[in-house]
Structures are given as structure tokens and as C-alpha cells.
């Protein structure tokens, strides 16, 4: 269970996240939708305590992230595709994380196997393709067998097989009763993966709903999304 209450964050004059409140419940995949620059990544960083909110709070299972004793065993996160040192092997990267949270070493080989990186585990991760980097990120998120998962754009850079793999993985994790919160700007992908949706635009909550509810009365989820966000998109100037 993830709770955001009145979450607010400014960067200079820009309000990146504006009084955002929502709950992400266990047992289903919750999609986090919004146009580029709408504050999805900032919200995820605020939940993980990487950035500080100017107001409001985020709680995971009722507690602040930084108060978790073994955070990786409660929350798994994938924030960006290449959050690892290019000179370090995938296995060393995961082994270090595991050591920091008292996770048994055997778990490293388990998650490497789950994401299909066993044969590449000893290679320097800097040589990985974008898709392999995403798989390593997913392995890191699953390392502590956490009840809560946050994934920021996990299908970026994946081939069609990888996209389907992520989709089935997220659904199965939710079916096991976990809380799965996954951001994307690919609405069609969310239509296939998520049951629930949190939609934001310009840092504000636009909808906290289900995929079925949001698609009802529109030709597609995409149409419903554009109708919802049309007011909230910052149009860029057309270069002359």
C-alpha cells in the first residue's frame, strides 16, 4: 500500500508535483499515467525519499521510506534504465545491494535467472544493451522479494518480447497480492497491463480510477486520456 497525501514539490518557480493525493492498493497493477513532464518521476522519487517534498507526505505501509529498516525487502524500485556503474558486473551490482539489506546471496542468482541475465551476469554492465539494462533494473527491484513495487517506464528500450515479459511479470506480481505501481506514457500498454489508473497532468491529480471506468464512454483509453489531459498539457512553441 502506497499513500500520497498532499504531496507537493517545487523546483524554483515550477511546481512539479502539486498537492497530489492518491492510494495505490495491493493486488492489482496500478498504472501511473501522464504526459511528459507531468511529474510522474518526481512523484516516484518523493515516495522513495530521494527528493524531499515541500509539503505533504508519502507513506509505504504507513511508514516513511527512510524509516524502513531493510527497504529493499519491502519496496523494489526501477527508476531509470542505467542506474548501475558501467564498470561493475550485474552480479556484483546485485550482490552489493543484497549485502546492504541482509538479503541472502542465493537470491542474487535467483533474480538473475528470473530476468534471463544469468549468462551475462559476469560481464561489465556498461556493455549491456538498453533492454538488458532494464532487465538488470527489474532484477534489482525484485531482489528483496518486496510487497511493493515502483517501476518508472519499465518497458522503455525493450523489444516486443521484453514488453510482453514485463506485462506478464507485473500481472503475476499483482496476482500474488503485491502492490504494483508502474508509470508509463504508453497508454495502449497500460490498457493491457493495468487495472487501476492514477492520471496526473502538470503535477495535479486528474483521475484516480480503473481502466474500465476511464475507457467507458470513449472510443479507447487513449481518447479518454487525451480528453482528460488536454487542459494539462504544456504545449511547446513550434520552432520557426
Amino acid at each position: 500500500m502506497i499513500e500520497a497525501r498532499n504531496l507537493t514539490r517545487r523546483y524554483g518557480p515550477t511546481v512539479a508535483v502539486n498537492a497530489l493525493s492518491f492510494d495505490v492498493r495491493p493486488g492489482s497493477v496500478t498504472g501511473f499515467l501522464g504526459p511528459n513532464g507531468s511529474g510522474k518521476s518526481t512523484t516516484m522519487r518523493l515516495i522513495l525519499g530521494l527528493d524531499r517534498p515541500d509539503a505533504g507526505r508519502a507513506r509505504i505501509g504507513g511508514r516513511r521510506y527512510r524509516d524502513l529498516r531493510f527497504p529493499l525487502r519491502e519496496v523494489g524500485a526501477l527508476l531509470e534504465a542505467r542506474a548501475f556503474h558501467p564498470g561493475r558486473s550485474a552480479r556484483s551490482h546485485l550482490t552489493a545491494m543484497a549485502a546492504g539489506n541482509a538479503i541472502p546471496r542465493g537470491r542474487v542468482d535467483e533474480v538473475l535467472d528470473m530476468v534471463g541475465l544469468t549468462s551475462a551476469a559476469g560481464r561489465r554492465a556498461g556493455k549491456f544493451s538498453l533492454g538488458m539494462g532494464q532487465r538488470l533494473g527489474v532484477a534489482a527491484a525484485l531482489l528483496g522479494d518486496p510487497a511493493v513495487l515502483l517501476l518508472d517506464e519499465p518497458v522503455n528500450g525493450l523489444d516486443p518480447e521484453g514488453v510482453r515479459w514485463i506485462r506478464e511479470l507485473l500481472k503475476s506480481l499483482a496476482a500474488q497480492g503485491r502492490t504494483v505501481f508502474v508509470s508509463s506514457h504508453l497508454i495502449s500498454e497500460m490498457a493491457l497491463t493495468a487495472e487501476r489508473l492514477v492520471v496526473i497532468g502538470r503535477g495535479r491529480l486528474l483521475a484516480d480510477t480503473t481502466v474500465a471506468e476511464m475507457s467507458a464512454g470513449a472510443a479507447s483509453l487513449e481518447d479518454a486520456f487525451f480528453r482528460l489531459t488536454s487542459e494539462a498539457v504544456e504545449y511547446r512553441e513550434v520552432p520557426s
Binding site: L48, L50, Y65, L72, A83, F84, H93, G100, A140
Partner: peptide
């Protein structure tokens, strides 16, 4: 960010 997620 991975490091701080592991050790807040």
C-alpha cells in the same frame, strides 16, 4: 539512487 534506495 539505487544506493540511497538500499540505504536511505
Amino acid at each position: 539512487r539505487v544506493t540511497l534506495a538500499a540505504v536511505p
